[in-house]
Design a protein around this nucleic acid. Structure first.
Length: 437
RNA sequence: GUGGGUGUAGCGUAGUUGGUUAACGCGCCAGUUUGUGGCACUGGAGAUCAUGGGUUCGAAUCCCUUCAUCCACCCCA
């Protein structure tokens, strides 16, 4: 029979068990930290009606969304977790306690040309806090503290959470008379870390921004110093624009509470150059970089938005959220060989019957070990002993228990530590203690 | 959507002034070792050189087609 060529679509991540274990470990850390801060789990369907997903029409999402028909239904795969959240809140707002703190970890889909670090299916790990009508700005300070805890636990210490407030930039643009082009200007500024000041200026010239104004923008973006210094310098500019002033006040308050949430000074900074491409952010915005690996780009981004569910309801739901693009993050970390090889096996012990006669006894031992919460596998195939041991080696299982005629007669088990090759005959209780310890 | 690169065993590559049986490393399987994995040694399996066509006495190598894939831009996580 002619066989079909087995292949995985480009842009889809598929891992070997060893890497999948590492991936799951990262996801567990993220989930644990989200729950530690009191966020509630949420899962929504991967498929939604196109009407709902595309309520906010236009632009890139429409181009990149996977859309299809099944019968008369016009369906789409979700391209982020925020839009489904908006729908969910609009439907369930009467049954939710506000502020609603939810986390969601799930796959999202984007039909783009795949390339380095860009996937068509990838995991997003989101948290959002949604207010009913109002939401305190203090929530915007809590987000960085959660980011801090996660990246700390993931084993990075040299990372920076960049913080800015969109109102500051928008206010500045207003003051400079750039109302029509502010979105474009924002997008160009967002590329600063990638293409540098010179090219940003060229790009700005291209969209007909005059040189004196470009100079003013650059001058503003180049403000340097420690957090408090920066705030002072911004204040000294005496820009008399309401939006700008509000933004600055908000930024000051967020900084104050970030400190209260115990984010160390070296792990956050005011960064006037981050703008974020997405248009729905209205206030505070965040990006997080690993400073030793800046080429990765932002590993966790988010911000404040004023009206989450505006396309589904008249009620106002302001919110703040962040998202970790886990698939891309993992991909980069693997590429840079940055994931510490803690443990790549699932089982702690492989029970190895020396021959078929030892099978019954071995299965009993396996059950006992499992009853004691030890992750245990038993090798059931009729193969040579060396093949059985090789299996444990391949799976990086740290211990094997060999059971043969001698062991059964003596009522002792041979425990072999794979890494050192040492082996000793022990009672099952001793093995349980040793492996657990 | 725009522009560029690349397709040779499972993976990574060598082989291009066209010349017999396509080479190497890793991996895989077996044996040396019938109660012991990694290391070493020995042997083995595995490739219609992406596809279709053309040029030629002769094509992995030159030309064209198609397909696949990668990178960059756009945009984003």
């Amino acid at each position: 029979m002619a066989k079909t060529i087995a292949r995985t679509l480009p842009g889809f991540m598929e891992l070997l068990p060893e890497d999948q274990i590492k991936f799951n470990n990262m996801m567990d850390i993220i989930r644990k930290n989200y729950e530690k801060a009191g966020f509630l789990p949420l899962d929504t369907p991967i498929i939604e009606s196109s009407e709902v997903l595309l309520a906010k029409a236009g632009g890139e999402t429409e181009k990149q969304i996977y859309r299809f028909e099944k019968g008369d239904n016009d369906l789409s795969l979700r391209f982020d977790l925020t839009v489904p959240l908006a729908k969910y809140v609009a439907i369930n707002c009467n049954n939710l306690a506000f502020p609603f703190r939810r986390y969601q970890i799930g796959k999202v889909y984007r039909g783009e040309r795949p390339q380095k670090g860009r996937y068509r299916e990838f995991y997003q790990c989101d948290i959002d806090i949604i207010g009913d009508g109002k939401l305190s700005i203090k929530n915007e300070a809590e987000m960085p503290s959660i980011i801090y805890n996660i990246f700390n636990e993931l084993g990075f210490n040299n990372f920076t959470i960049h913080i800015n407030n969109r109102k500051i930039l928008n206010g500045l643009f207003e003051e400079l008379g750039l109302t029509d082009t502010s979105v474009d200007v924002m997008r160009i500024i967002d590329k600063l870390d990638k293409i540098g000041f010179e090219k940003v200026c060229t790009e700005l010239e291209k969209i007909n921004i005059s040189k004196p104004i470009i100079e003013k923008i650059v001058e503003f973006l180049e403000i340097q110093g420690e957090t408090n210094e920066k705030i002072e310098k911004i204040e000294k500019l005496n820009i008399n624009n309401e939006k700008f002033k509000t933004g600055l006040e908000e930024l000051k308050e967020v900084i104050k509470y970030i400190r209260l949430f115990k984010v160390p000074e070296e792990n956050f900074m005011i960064d006037l150059t981050i703008a974020r491409g997405l248009d729905y952010y209205t206030g505070t915005v965040y990006e997080t970089t690993l400073n030793d690996y800046k080429q990765i780009g932002s590993v966790c981004s988010g911000g404040r938005y004023d009206n989450l569910a505006e396309y589904y309801t008249d009620k106002k739901f302001p919110g703040v959220g962040i998202s970790i693009g886990l698939t891309r993050l993992f991909d980069k970390l693997i590429e840079l060989d940055l994931i510490k090889n803690k443990k790549t096996s699932i089982s702690d012990i492989l029970v190895v019957p020396a021959s078929e006669e030892d099978m019954e006894y071995s299965i009993n031992i396996t059950s006992k070990l499992r009853e004691n919460n030890i992750k245990t596998e038993v090798y059931l195939e009729d193969k040579k002993l060396k093949a059985k041991i090789k299996y444990a080696d391949r799976q990086s299982i740290p211990y094997i228990v060999v059971i043969g005629e001698d062991e059964r007669k003596e009522n002792l088990l041979t425990l072999k530590t794979m890494e050192t090759g040492e082996q000793e005959k022990l009672k099952i209780e001793d093995i349980i203690n040793k492996v657990k310890g």
